[in-house]
Nucleic acid binder design. Structure first.
Length: 650
DNA sequence: TAAAATGCATGT
DNA sequence: CATGCATTTTAC
């Protein structure tokens, strides 16, 4: 008897396993492993995917027959089936949820188009582009030869990273293997696709973007799954793309929060990619101008080697970075003064314009959550018990005074004793307010002003002509030939955020902007030169900062050194959940703390955090998923949101 | 949402 | 303690 193992599209956690169905005689020639089917499940017809075909079943009862073959197209390859299962396990979610992220909706028209043969492999790439990194050419040849090389690549300022990544893809293709590259957003994807177009054979590349029309999206997915396009470039959803004979996976700027999937079970693209490299035994490159603590851990644990230029090469490529004090002198020029430009920034910008080069001015987006910092040294204030961030308690205490309390474990911070400078007073951190482009424009009469941001529209590039380019972080256009200078303003708003990653994230934003300045150009950052993040920027030392950041996280017991799970729901549902939870040894439960209401959610919600050592992460995820299973089997009315290693921990 | 399992009142 | 009918549970 032919048996099809089917993952059914039902969201219930206790049904997160394949179910066996009999393959009826008349459908036998249409069923293939990985195809979409419809089956009768608990009476009703549901969608499903065949994960495997077999000759027998362990099921003791009668097998129901497959109701319908939706299509014979094998959309779920064995490699992706294993990956999605494994990602579900890691994030305490169900495979069905992960499949929803991995498989685009089916469309009839693209499927009817005949399959095309893949183009012949290109020659091995020219290693000259990677020659500035001592082990660069070695990495390129390792990828071409099909070795499972692993690297954390810290790109030089001004690096033409899209071309470098296309060369890595070319290396994989030249050795007959496929490649996958994930970038944060559409702007980066455009640049990467353009570089791939230049270097790779026509027809060998599929560009997967979340915002494409459904037919286009499914059509491009098929060119990959059918093996026509062996290189896939895309945004976070593309980490699951069915690349044939995968030889290389790459992620660009892994610190960008766009790599975190907002839909359950909330997997992070870097995490999925590292997992996938492991399962497929293929090469992996974690690439960025900055470096995350997670990437530092991959290096420290020996999983990856670092691919980094030596200091001499860096010095010739980098701009000159200068920091202003915390109480800098405002420019004397009245227009510059009204735009709150510091003297040094104003002079540097004016000189760049006079030299005929554009100037980049980075201003943070407004709307950061106010938090508490040490009044003396301005380090974020942390809880003495669990090292969570301190905030102002939402409701006043018994004496009517609103006191500081931990946002994780809710313990009040009656006293404060700064571990950095022994200060005892707290202050609210500044909330970032963006300067208007008009104000800046008035400070430089005669200069063209361009604005790039979410609300005004993101510019991908600007010309090399003198102009003031105002941009929010992540929206900085690339200037032809590089900017002459960059001003990084309102830095306290970035550094003072009550976020675990505030330092790392600030450095990433600064570096990404400063990297667009030409070699020998100037960068002025309006922040205290004594601050360690500022020092790391001045020295252009992302690796050093990441190492330090990782050491801090280890000391405080934060991810990625530990594993954290956040549980949020109503107080009663959480009490039930925790009651049923059988935690592995050594777990630490923090909370509850009240959660700010989200749009579309009513009633009071709370959050707990569960912290455990990294080696027990899989056991924690299993325990959490088991509780979800028991609750869904019992038809518990309320859903508890479970998120592993959430980006936002504050 | 169909079939199977279980619950439960009723009659002997 | 069978029997018939309603309700709950399972899920291939």
């Amino acid at each position: 008897m032919r048996v099809a193992r089917v993952v059914v599209d039902v969201p219930l956690a206790h049904l997160d396993r394949p179910f066996d169905y009999a393959v009826p005689e008349e459908l036998a020639d249409q069923v293939v492993a990985g195809c979409r089917v419809r089956v009768r499940f608990a009476g009703k017809l549901v969608d499903g995917v065949v994960v495997e075909l077999a000759g027998s079943s362990d099921h003791t009862g009668r097998l129901a027959p497959l109701a319908k073959i939706v299509s014979s197209e094998p959309v779920l390859t064995p490699e992706v089936a294993e990956l999605t299962r494994s990602v579900a396990d890691r994030y305490a979610g169900s495979m069905t949820d992960v499949l929803r992220l991995a498989l685009p909706p089916r469309r009839g028209a693209p499927e009817k188009r005949p399959r095309q043969d893949p183009p012949p492999p290109p020659p091995a790439p020219d290693p000259a582009g990677f020659a500035r990194y001592p082990t660069g050419p070695l990495l390129l040849s390792a990828v071409a030869e099909g070795h499972a090389a692993r690297a954390v690549w810290t790109a030089l300022p001004g690096e033409d990273w899209p071309t470098r990544l296309a060369e890595l893809c070319q290396a994989a293709l030249s050795g007959g293997r496929g490649a996958l590259v994930v970038v944060p957003d559409g702007k980066d994807l455009d640049r990467l696709a353009a570089a791939a177009e230049r270097l790779l054979p026509a027809g060998s590349v599929a560009v997967l973007r979340a915002d494409s029309a459904p037919d286009t999206r499914y059509g491009r997915f098929l060119t990959a799954s059918r093996g026509t396009a062996q290189v896939v470039l895309g945004t976070r959803g593309a980490v699951f793309a069915p690349v044939r004979d995968l030889g290389l996976v790459v992620i660009w700027d892994d610190g960008d929060d766009l790599h975190a999937e907002p839909r359950a079970p909330y997997p992070h693209a870097r995490d999925v990619l590292v997992h996938r490299a492991h399962l497929a035994s293929c090469a992996a490159v974690i690439a960025a101008t900055a470096r995350t603590a997670e990437a530092a851990l991959l290096v420290e644990s020996g999983w990856a080697h670092e691919l980094i230029a030596d200091r001499g090469t860096l010095r010739t490529a980098a701009p000159r970075v200068e920091a202003l004090g915390s109480d800098f002198e405002l420019a004397r020029d009245p227009a510059a003064r009204s735009a709150r430009l510091p003297t040094l920034g104003f002079d540097v910008a004016r000189r760049s314009l006079q030299a005929g080069r554009p100037v980049l001015i980075q201003v943070p987006r407004s709307g950061y959550v106010p938090s508490l910092v040490c009044d003396r040294c301005r380090a974020p204030a942390r809880c003495a018990h669990c090292a969570g961030p301190l905030g102002i308690a939402p409701s006043p205490g018994p004496n009517g005074v609103r006191i500081a309390a931990c946002r994780w474990c809710a313990r009040p911070a009656a006293t404060f004793d700064c571990p950095h400078c022994s200060g005892t007073k707290l202050r609210a951190a500044v909330i970032g307010a963006s300067r208007t482009a008009e104000e800046l424009g008035r400070a430089f009469p005669g200069a063209a002003v361009r604005v790039s941001g979410r609300s005004s529209g993101v510019l991908a590039t600007v010309s090399g002509d003198p102009a003031i380019v105002v941009a929010t972080p992540g929206a900085e256009p690339v200037a032809e030939g590089g900017y002459g200078a960059a001003l990084l303003l309102d830095s306290w708003a970035l550094l003072g955020r009550a976020d675990l990653r505030a330092g790392e994230e600030t450095m990433r934003r600064w570096l990404n902007a400063a990297a667009l300045v030409q070699a020998g150009g100037r960068v002025v950052v309006s922040a205290d030169a004594a601050h360690p993040v500022v020092q790391a920027l001045v020295r252009w030392d992302p690796a050093g900062l990441a190492t330090r950041e990782l050491a801090d996280r280890r000391e405080l017991g934060f991810p990625p050194v530990t594993r954290m799970a956040s549980l949020s729901a109503s107080p009663s549902a959480l009490a039930e959940f925790l009651d049923a939870l059988r935690l592995p040894g050594g777990a630490d439960v923090l909370g509850p703390v009240p959660e700010p209401p989200r749009p579309g959610q009513e009633g009071e919600r709370e959050r707990y955090l569960v912290r455990i050592r990294r080696s027990e992460g899989a056991a924690l995820a299993r325990a959490l998923h088991d509780v979800q299973g028991v609750r869904s089997a019992r038809k518990a009315p309320e859903h508890v949101r479970v998120q592993l290693d959430p980006l936002e921990l504050a």
